[in-house]
Protein backbone atom coordinates (compact mmCIF):
# COMPACT_ATOMS: atom_id res chain seq x y z
CA UNK A 1 0.00 0.00 0.00
CA UNK A 2 1.47 3.35 -0.97
CA UNK A 3 1.44 6.05 1.66
CA UNK A 4 0.05 9.32 0.39
CA UNK A 5 -0.67 10.41 3.93
CA UNK A 6 1.11 10.02 7.24
CA UNK A 7 -1.89 9.28 9.44
CA UNK A 8 -5.46 8.21 8.79
CA UNK A 9 -8.04 7.47 11.50
CA UNK A 10 -11.50 6.38 10.35
CA UNK A 11 -14.41 6.27 12.75
CA UNK A 12 -12.71 4.54 15.66
CA UNK A 13 -14.64 3.27 18.63
CA UNK A 14 -12.73 2.43 21.80
CA UNK A 15 -14.06 1.02 25.05
CA UNK A 16 -11.87 1.47 28.13
CA UNK A 17 -11.64 -1.04 31.01
CA UNK A 18 -14.03 1.07 33.09
CA UNK A 19 -16.53 0.88 30.16
CA UNK A 20 -16.05 4.51 29.09
CA UNK A 21 -16.62 4.67 25.35
CA UNK A 22 -14.99 7.09 22.95
CA UNK A 23 -16.27 7.38 19.37
CA UNK A 24 -13.75 9.19 17.16
CA UNK A 25 -16.20 9.55 14.33
CA UNK A 26 -17.77 12.34 12.31
CA UNK A 27 -15.04 13.41 9.94
CA UNK A 28 -12.08 11.19 9.07
CA UNK A 29 -8.83 12.31 10.66
CA UNK A 30 -6.22 12.56 7.90
CA UNK A 31 -2.74 14.08 8.14
CA UNK A 32 -0.71 14.62 4.96
CA UNK A 33 3.06 14.27 5.10
CA UNK A 34 4.75 17.50 6.11
CA UNK A 35 1.54 18.99 7.47
CA UNK A 36 1.15 20.62 10.90
CA UNK A 37 -2.14 19.46 12.37
CA UNK A 38 -3.70 20.54 15.64
CA UNK A 39 -6.43 18.54 17.39
CA UNK A 40 -8.43 21.09 19.34
CA UNK A 41 -10.94 20.05 21.96
CA UNK A 42 -11.96 20.52 25.59
CA UNK A 43 -10.98 18.14 28.40
CA UNK A 44 -12.53 14.73 27.94
CA UNK A 45 -13.13 15.12 24.20
CA UNK A 46 -10.90 12.18 23.27
CA UNK A 47 -7.77 14.00 22.11
CA UNK A 48 -5.41 11.74 24.07
CA UNK A 49 -7.40 8.68 23.00
CA UNK A 50 -6.88 9.68 19.37
CA UNK A 51 -3.16 10.18 19.95
CA UNK A 52 -2.78 6.86 21.75
CA UNK A 53 -4.43 5.09 18.80
CA UNK A 54 -1.96 6.79 16.45
CA UNK A 55 0.90 5.60 18.67
CA UNK A 56 -0.41 2.05 18.75
CA UNK A 57 -0.90 2.11 22.52
CA UNK A 58 -4.62 1.46 22.07
CA UNK A 59 -6.31 -0.80 19.58
CA UNK A 60 -9.76 0.22 18.43
CA UNK A 61 -12.78 -1.99 19.03
CA UNK A 62 -14.07 -0.74 15.67
CA UNK A 63 -12.61 1.38 12.90
CA UNK A 64 -9.24 1.80 11.24
CA UNK A 65 -6.02 3.48 12.19
CA UNK A 66 -3.12 3.70 9.75
CA UNK A 67 0.24 5.36 10.27
CA UNK A 68 2.67 5.32 7.35
CA UNK A 69 0.54 2.60 5.84
CA UNK A 70 0.60 0.18 8.79
CA UNK A 71 -1.69 -0.59 11.71
CA UNK A 72 0.30 0.89 14.61
CA UNK A 73 -1.29 -1.33 17.26
CA UNK A 74 -0.11 -4.47 15.43
CA UNK A 75 3.06 -3.33 13.68
CA UNK A 76 4.50 -0.40 15.58
CA UNK A 77 7.96 -1.98 15.27
CA UNK A 78 7.90 -1.22 11.54
CA UNK A 79 7.43 2.52 12.05
CA UNK A 80 8.86 3.09 15.53
CA UNK A 81 11.97 4.93 14.40
CA UNK A 82 9.87 7.23 12.21
CA UNK A 83 7.67 8.47 15.09
CA UNK A 84 8.64 10.77 17.97
CA UNK A 85 6.32 11.54 20.89
CA UNK A 86 6.09 14.19 23.62
CA UNK A 87 3.54 13.35 26.30
CA UNK A 88 1.54 15.73 28.46
CA UNK A 89 3.31 14.74 31.67
CA UNK A 90 7.00 14.84 30.81
CA UNK A 91 7.95 13.24 34.12
CA UNK A 92 6.35 10.07 32.82
CA UNK A 93 8.31 10.28 29.61
CA UNK A 94 11.77 10.87 31.03
CA UNK A 95 13.14 7.44 31.92
CA UNK A 96 16.82 7.76 32.49
CA UNK A 97 18.91 9.42 35.18
CA UNK A 98 20.69 12.18 33.25
CA UNK A 99 19.78 14.30 30.24
CA UNK A 100 22.34 12.55 28.05
CA UNK A 101 21.11 9.12 29.17
CA UNK A 102 17.50 10.00 28.39
CA UNK A 103 18.06 11.64 25.01
CA UNK A 104 20.34 8.77 23.96
CA UNK A 105 17.83 6.15 25.15
CA UNK A 106 16.28 5.37 21.77
CA UNK A 107 19.47 5.25 19.63
CA UNK A 108 21.22 3.16 22.30
CA UNK A 109 18.35 0.71 22.43
CA UNK A 110 18.14 0.51 18.63
CA UNK A 111 21.79 -0.52 18.53
CA UNK A 112 23.38 2.56 17.00
CA UNK A 113 27.18 2.58 17.48
CA UNK A 114 28.43 4.69 20.38
CA UNK A 115 30.17 7.41 18.31
CA UNK A 116 27.00 7.80 16.24
CA UNK A 117 24.89 8.04 19.41
CA UNK A 118 27.20 10.77 20.74
CA UNK A 119 26.96 12.73 17.51
CA UNK A 120 23.16 12.45 17.32
CA UNK A 121 22.67 13.46 20.95
CA UNK A 122 25.05 16.42 20.72
CA UNK A 123 23.30 17.62 17.57
CA UNK A 124 19.78 17.47 18.99
CA UNK A 125 20.77 19.02 22.33
CA UNK A 126 22.29 21.91 20.39
CA UNK A 127 19.19 22.20 18.22
CA UNK A 128 16.85 22.35 21.21
CA UNK A 129 19.15 24.68 23.15
CA UNK A 130 19.99 22.47 26.13
CA UNK A 131 23.55 21.39 25.41
CA UNK A 132 24.58 22.90 28.75
CA UNK A 133 22.27 20.45 30.57
CA UNK A 134 23.85 17.34 29.07
CA UNK A 135 25.10 15.76 32.30
CA UNK A 136 22.43 17.11 34.64
CA UNK A 137 20.20 14.78 36.65
CA UNK A 138 16.72 14.99 35.15
CA UNK A 139 14.59 15.21 38.26
CA UNK A 140 16.43 18.36 39.36
CA UNK A 141 15.50 20.31 36.21
CA UNK A 142 12.74 22.90 35.94
CA UNK A 143 9.46 22.09 34.17
CA UNK A 144 10.48 23.95 31.00
CA UNK A 145 13.88 22.25 30.92
CA UNK A 146 12.29 18.81 31.34
CA UNK A 147 9.95 19.56 28.45
CA UNK A 148 12.93 20.38 26.26
CA UNK A 149 14.63 17.16 27.34
CA UNK A 150 11.49 15.22 26.38
CA UNK A 151 11.43 17.03 23.02
CA UNK A 152 15.10 16.29 22.40
CA UNK A 153 14.48 12.62 23.20
CA UNK A 154 11.63 12.59 20.70
CA UNK A 155 13.69 14.29 17.96
CA UNK A 156 17.03 12.53 18.32
CA UNK A 157 16.30 10.02 15.53
CA UNK A 158 14.92 12.77 13.25
CA UNK A 159 11.44 11.28 13.08
CA UNK A 160 9.14 11.92 10.16
CA UNK A 161 6.16 12.28 12.47
CA UNK A 162 6.13 14.14 15.80
CA UNK A 163 3.11 13.55 18.03
CA UNK A 164 2.59 15.90 20.98
CA UNK A 165 -0.02 15.78 23.74
CA UNK A 166 -0.59 19.19 25.37
CA UNK A 167 3.01 20.33 24.86
CA UNK A 168 2.38 23.73 26.51
CA UNK A 169 0.97 22.37 29.76
CA UNK A 170 2.45 24.20 32.74
CA UNK A 171 4.51 26.67 30.70
CA UNK A 172 4.45 30.43 31.17
CA UNK A 173 3.60 32.62 28.11
CA UNK A 174 7.24 33.32 27.25
CA UNK A 175 8.17 29.64 27.40
CA UNK A 176 5.11 28.75 25.29
CA UNK A 177 6.11 31.23 22.65
CA UNK A 178 9.73 29.98 22.69
CA UNK A 179 8.60 26.37 22.33
CA UNK A 180 6.26 27.26 19.47
CA UNK A 181 9.05 29.07 17.65
CA UNK A 182 11.41 26.12 18.17
CA UNK A 183 8.86 23.61 16.83
CA UNK A 184 8.23 25.73 13.74
CA UNK A 185 11.94 26.12 13.15
CA UNK A 186 12.40 22.36 13.32
CA UNK A 187 9.42 21.79 11.05
CA UNK A 188 10.81 24.23 8.47
CA UNK A 189 14.26 22.62 8.64
CA UNK A 190 13.25 18.94 8.62
CA UNK A 191 9.85 18.94 6.92
CA UNK A 192 8.52 16.89 9.82
CA UNK A 193 4.80 16.09 10.07
CA UNK A 194 3.41 17.37 13.37
CA UNK A 195 0.27 16.31 15.19
CA UNK A 196 -0.49 18.32 18.34
CA UNK A 197 -3.38 17.81 20.73
CA UNK A 198 -4.27 20.83 22.82
CA UNK A 199 -7.11 22.74 24.43
CA UNK A 200 -5.05 25.97 24.34
CA UNK A 201 -6.66 27.96 21.51
CA UNK A 202 -4.00 30.67 21.71
CA UNK A 203 -1.32 28.18 20.67
CA UNK A 204 -3.21 27.07 17.56
CA UNK A 205 -2.42 29.86 15.04
CA UNK A 206 1.34 29.37 15.57
CA UNK A 207 1.27 25.60 15.19
CA UNK A 208 -1.36 24.64 12.64
CA UNK A 209 -1.80 24.30 8.91
CA UNK A 210 -4.97 22.32 9.60
CA UNK A 211 -7.21 22.11 12.66
CA UNK A 212 -9.56 19.33 13.71
CA UNK A 213 -12.18 20.12 16.35
CA UNK A 214 -13.31 17.41 18.77
CA UNK A 215 -16.26 17.62 21.10
CA UNK A 216 -17.11 15.65 24.24
CA UNK A 217 -17.39 11.95 23.42
CA UNK A 218 -14.84 12.15 20.60
CA UNK A 219 -16.89 13.31 17.62
CA UNK A 220 -14.78 15.18 15.05
CA UNK A 221 -17.09 18.04 14.14
CA UNK A 222 -14.95 20.36 12.09
CA UNK A 223 -11.83 20.42 9.92
CA UNK A 224 -10.24 23.42 8.30
CA UNK A 225 -7.55 26.06 8.29
CA UNK A 226 -7.06 28.20 11.38
CA UNK A 227 -8.92 31.07 9.68
CA UNK A 228 -11.87 28.82 8.77
CA UNK A 229 -12.14 27.34 12.24
CA UNK A 230 -11.80 30.64 14.07
CA UNK A 231 -14.18 32.38 11.68
CA UNK A 232 -17.08 30.80 13.54
CA UNK A 233 -16.68 31.68 17.21
CA UNK A 234 -20.21 30.46 17.93
CA UNK A 235 -19.40 26.98 16.67
CA UNK A 236 -16.28 26.87 18.82
CA UNK A 237 -18.33 27.85 21.87
CA UNK A 238 -20.88 25.20 21.04
CA UNK A 239 -18.00 22.72 21.10
CA UNK A 240 -17.13 23.98 24.57
CA UNK A 241 -14.00 25.71 23.31
CA UNK A 242 -13.48 29.31 24.32
CA UNK A 243 -12.31 31.18 21.18
CA UNK A 244 -9.36 33.60 21.42
CA UNK A 245 -10.50 37.00 22.61
CA UNK A 246 -9.30 38.67 19.43
CA UNK A 247 -11.58 36.35 17.39
CA UNK A 248 -14.52 37.01 19.66
CA UNK A 249 -13.92 40.77 19.61
CA UNK A 250 -13.97 41.01 15.82
CA UNK A 251 -16.96 38.70 15.58
CA UNK A 252 -18.90 40.97 17.97
CA UNK A 253 -17.81 44.05 15.99
CA UNK A 254 -19.01 42.26 12.86
CA UNK A 255 -22.42 41.62 14.47
CA UNK A 256 -22.62 45.31 15.44
CA UNK A 257 -22.10 46.29 11.80
CA UNK A 258 -18.40 47.09 11.94
CA UNK A 259 -17.16 44.66 9.32
CA UNK A 260 -13.41 44.68 9.77
CA UNK A 261 -12.71 41.03 8.91
CA UNK A 262 -12.09 37.86 10.92
CA UNK A 263 -8.48 37.74 12.15
CA UNK A 264 -7.17 34.62 13.89
CA UNK A 265 -4.24 36.32 15.60
CA UNK A 266 -3.21 39.68 17.02
CA UNK A 267 -0.92 40.28 14.01
CA UNK A 268 -3.79 39.70 11.59
CA UNK A 269 -5.98 42.03 13.65
CA UNK A 270 -3.37 44.81 13.56
CA UNK A 271 -3.10 44.48 9.78
CA UNK A 272 -6.88 44.59 9.35
CA UNK A 273 -7.24 47.64 11.60
CA UNK A 274 -4.46 49.50 9.80
CA UNK A 275 -6.06 48.73 6.46
CA UNK A 276 -9.47 49.81 7.71
CA UNK A 277 -8.14 53.08 9.17
CA UNK A 278 -6.11 53.82 6.04
CA UNK A 279 -9.24 53.22 3.95
CA UNK A 280 -11.26 55.67 6.09
CA UNK A 281 -8.60 58.35 5.85
CA UNK A 282 -8.45 58.12 2.09
CA UNK A 283 -12.26 58.23 2.00
Amino acid sequence: MTEDYAVRVSCVRHVYADRTQVHLCGLDFVVQKGQRVVILGPNGSGKSTLLYHILGLLEPNEGDVTVFGVNPARSFNKIRERVGVVLQNVDEQILAPTVWDDVSFSPRNYGYPEPEVDRMVDAVLEEVGIAHLKDKVCHLLSGGEKRKVALAGALVLKPELLVMDEPFEGLDPTSKSDLSALLNELHAKNGMTMVTATHDVHAVPDLADLVYVLVAGGEITARGSVEDIFADAARLKASNIEPPQIVELFQRLDEEGLRLGRPSSVEDAVALLKAALAGRESA
Binding site: S104, S106, N109
Partner: peptide
Amino acid sequence: IRGHSGRVCG
Protein backbone atom coordinates in the same frame (compact mmCIF):
# COMPACT_ATOMS: atom_id res chain seq x y z
CA ILE B 1 7.49 3.50 22.02
CA ARG B 2 11.11 4.53 22.58
CA GLY B 3 12.34 1.02 21.87
CA HIS B 4 13.59 -0.23 25.23
CA SER B 5 15.55 -3.43 24.77
CA GLY B 6 18.76 -2.80 26.63
CA ARG B 7 19.58 -0.70 29.62
CA VAL B 8 17.97 2.45 30.94
CA CYS B 9 21.22 4.20 31.75
CA GLY B 10 24.06 5.01 29.36
